[in-house]
Simulated scan of single mutants.
Amino acid sequence: MEDILIPTLRTSVSFIILILITMVIGKHINTHKSHYSFALSIMIGSFVANMGFDVNIKFKSMLSSFLILVILFYLFMVLSSRSRNIRKWLSGRPTVLIENGKILDKNMRKVKFSIDDLNQFLREKDIFNISEVEFALLEVSGELSILKKKPFQYTTKQDFNLPNSSESLPVELIMDGKIIKKNFSEKYNHNWIEAECKKRNLQIKDIYYAVVNSDGHLFVDKYKDKFSSPTDVE
């Protein structure tokens, strides 16, 4: 019984500690945008696994080491946010691979990048002709950032001199047939959503999801969509 109880308790406590830690620094770890955040994510996984399953290692010793690791990461994170030099040292800097349409072969060799690697990254960005690229930077995260030459850039509304219009974040008002009161405002309140439902001959309980889009229009999805043969793909 003890062989089952102790690992169960250790695993449960380790998982709770992991959840608490990720609530504090999880956004920095999950992105893997720097060397030290990537290294920390690997070490955290190793620590939690050992704390949970390796009964030959004292739990208190592992926990103290784990907390020291997290504290060190947090301190470095604070320092890097206040000092650009420390941030460069910890996070690294992007490497320019293409500049003014020219491939920088020296930088390619520094990061051990071949032409095949570069072409693959470009294809993943929907670029099949390297002649379309003005700048290409290999980010610390391993992603390739591209700036196309002007003739190949996407057209935006600004190019047509259209009048500016502000947008806002979508506002979810109904989910699973229940009103989300915390998202109410002076404009989008209970009376407003009731009136919108009345226009559509619907009740709140009939609606699966209702959201005010960023353009100010209300999107409503009902529970019963009345499809004769809906697609079912897993």
Rank of each mutant, 00 (worst) to 15 (best):
T11H: 04
L162V: 14
S14P: 07
L138K: 00
Q120Y: 12
L63K: 03
R82Y: 05
F38L: 12
N129F: 10
Y74E: 03
D176E: 08
T22I: 15
I103Q: 00
I207V: 07
N189R: 02
Y74G: 03
E196A: 01
L122K: 01
Q153I: 07
F38R: 08
N85Q: 13
N164Y: 12
L202M: 00
V233A: 12
K102V: 11
K181R: 11
L137A: 14
Y36N: 12
F73R: 02
L138M: 01
N50L: 15
L63W: 02
Q153C: 03
R87P: 14
T156V: 05
M62G: 11
F47M: 08
L63T: 12
S14C: 03
I86R: 04
L202F: 01
I17D: 13
S168P: 07
F128K: 08
S131I: 09
D221C: 14
I146R: 09
E134Y: 05
D126V: 14
S34L: 07
M175W: 11
K33P: 00
I207C: 05
M23T: 13
I98S: 05
L5M: 10
G101P: 12
T31M: 11
V70L: 14
E194W: 13
V24P: 05
S81Q: 15
R123C: 09
S91P: 03
E167F: 13
P170T: 01
I174Q: 00
S64F: 08
E172S: 03
K222Y: 09
E124P: 10
V211A: 00
L122R: 03
G101M: 04
D126H: 09
I130S: 03
D54L: 12
F76A: 09
D225A: 04
I29P: 10
V70F: 15
D126C: 05
K27Y: 07
K157S: 09
V55W: 08
